[in-house]
Amino acid sequence: MFEARLVQGALLKKVLESIKDLLNEATWECAATGISLQAMDSSHVSLVALNLRSDGFDKYRCDRNVSLGMNLTNMAKIMKCASNDDVITIKAQDDADTVTFVFETPNQEKISDYEMKLMNLDTEHLGIPDTDYSCIVKMPSVEFQRICRDLSQIGDSVVISCTKEGVKFSAAGDLGTGNVKLAQNANVDKEEEAVVIEMQEPVSLTFACRYLNSFTKATPLAPQVQLSMSSDVPLVVEYKLEDMGYVRYYLAPKIED
């Protein structure tokens, strides 16, 4: 028996919104420690890895590990039936071929349940090597979203260049060029407004705008985003979920032909 209850059901709705652009289907791996998911987009350019720890749920029971393969478009249709203040419970029997979502209003006066068919997905779990990144940038997630949106008007790719002074995002296209520079700025009133750079050595990497824009669907999940970069390895874009876990995106760089 698997059962996970989240009073803050809106969080689950936001998590789904953050991945459904990139992934049509994925397997939610449910274990005693929590729920995890790892999947690549259909072009195998990016990878999503998320973790929702069991202690972040209000009630969590997982007698044995279950893999819940879901069509995320269909899951999103069902999640749209939950109000933002609903309590959401996910339930599945061991070896079940369906999953049940229960939505309760805070006053318990309306309870809805939706049963969805599960899929058998042939998913390969990739090993992600531990990496000491050359540059780690922490910045407001809304700012990152804005920069990705703005520069995707200019070109298909963004060059992210990081030095200890700051981080620069650049795009070039038929109409011209655009550059956005952010200086390191830890002395702000609010912690979430800070731009903090930890640099071992400067890096400059090129990434496809399309994927960066998809990653920013996670913006409502966290006030800050963390970008981890090293030469010739995938960029990591991480949104931390308070007291719960994380949503991480990995994006393979573009390289000179």
């Binding site: 072009s43 990739l126 090993g127 992600i128 790719s157 393979a252 573009k254 032909d257």
Partner: peptide, 13 residues
Amino acid sequence: MAQKTITSFFKAP
């Protein structure tokens, strides 16, 4: 520029 894939960095065990 050429787009690399994730599988050229991360391998299935």
